[in-house]
């Protein structure tokens, strides 16, 4: 499966306050042929997003110190860019605010724990191909 990486050149941002989580996620994503950058909270993440307008996907934890996943999503949404990187929440937590996920342009929610295959499928359907805008996936929000 790594013979013809479909995501060559794509950069993904992984945001999680848990170092183990960041490490294992990055490993998996790199195996898929993605370039991965990491942030340990929302504040770090938003700086990285601003610095990398060509990001293909943001995978963010929900609860983090300083600035959480929802605040990050809002910040991304409010970026004055014509197109913005797809935003996916990866969390074991069910915040009632997730009901407003659509408003915040949150494309999908992946619940911890999850199987490797789920992550791969999510990336496959969420990632913005270089230079294009992704289509929202119906029914992926809950």
């Amino acid at each position: 499966m790594f013979t013809d990486p479909p995501f060559a050149g794509c950069v993904v941002l992984v945001v999680d306050d848990d170092a183990d989580m960041r490490e294992v996620m990055s490993g998996v994503l790199e195996d898929l042929g993605l370039a991965v950058i990491e942030a340990k909270d929302g504040l770090e993440a938003i700086a990285l997003v601003r610095a990398n307008p060509g990001l293909c996907l943001i995978l963010s934890d929900l609860k983090m110190p300083r600035c959480d996943g929802l605040e990050l999503a809002r910040a991304v949404k409010e970026l004055p860019w014509p197109t913005k990187p797809p935003f996916v929440i990866v969390s074991g937590y069910s915040d009632p605010a997730l009901g407003r996920a659509e408003e915040l342009n949150i494309l999908s929610i992946l619940r911890k724990p999850f199987r490797l295959e789920e992550l791969r499928a999510l990336v496959a359907r969420s990632i913005r191909p270089l230079g294009s805008t992704p289509e929202p996936v119906p029914g992926s929000l809950d």
């Binding site: 499966m1 790594f2 989580m21 294992v24 074991g92 911890k112 724990p113 999850f114």
Partner: peptide, 27 residues
């Protein structure tokens, strides 16, 4: 507790599956 456990479980699950995949790939 569930919140505390979900992240480590995700880490372990992914780690194991990643190791398995890599082993299958001979990598």
């Amino acid at each position: 507790l569930a919140h505390e456990l979900n992240t480590p479980l995700a880490v372990m699950l992914l780690t194991v599956e990643q190791l398995q995949a890599q082993e299958r790939e001979g990598q």
